[in-house]
């Protein structure tokens, strides 16, 4: 959450709620909507580290709102984030743990586990397809995010197939 907020603040100063709205508008409905509390906690930490500062802006009939802006140190941190290569996805699959370990305990049959998981992945795929249909065709970022999720799901299904073929 830190770097995306820094990136948005590098564009222009904003208050917490505006940052939440910006994330939702850019990434669309496939992106799990960030919790406003979490955004304020992150902003607090960024402020403590000297990456952002805030000013109170007076509002009539309402409590003051805090507008955050990025500092030189924040800009530097953002630059090094952008310059670093990003870790690839790691296989840390809870289902694979189940699949390997559960039959050893006699708790479950491997075929049943695979079949249930396949149906679950396919129903996720269906939801993603429906999400893509509902997404504004002009929002390329949101559509690419959904497509990325679909491609990952396809890989998970292919892996499931390999597990079904090769595990005893």
């Amino acid at each position: 959450m830190r770097q995306p907020l820094l990136a948005l603040l590098a564009k222009e100063p904003a208050h917490g709620y505006e940052l939440k709205q910006a994330l939702e508008a850019i990434f669309g409905s496939a992106y799990p909507s960030p919790n406003i509390g979490q955004i304020y906690v992150t902003l607090g930490r960024l402020e403590k580290d000297g990456y952002v500062r805030s000013v109170d802006v007076e509002q009539s009939n309402r409590p003051n709102k805090k507008v955050y802006y990025i500092t030189a140190a924040g800009r530097e941190a953002l630059e090094s984030w952008v310059d670093e290569p990003t870790e690839g996805p790691r296989v840390r699959d809870e289902f694979f743990m189940k699949l390997v370990l559960a039959p050893m305990t006699g708790l479950a049959d491997r075929m049943a586990l695979v079949n249930r998981q396949r149906r679950h992945y396919l129903s996720l795929m269906r939801d993603l397809r429906e999400l893509a249909e509902r997404t504004d065709p002009g929002n390329r970022v949101a559509l690419l995010l959904i497509e990325g999720a679909m491609l990952h799901l396809q890989a998970d299904l292919d892996w499931l197939e390999r597990c079904q073929e090769d595990l005893p």
């Binding site: 995306p4 992106y31 799990p32 996720l124 990325g148 799901l153």
Partner: peptide, 11 residues
């Protein structure tokens, strides 16, 4: 298990 859970953007 919702569509949103498939997407986990790190950062």
């Amino acid at each position: 298990g919702t569509a949103g859970d498939v997407v986990e953007l790190r950062g």
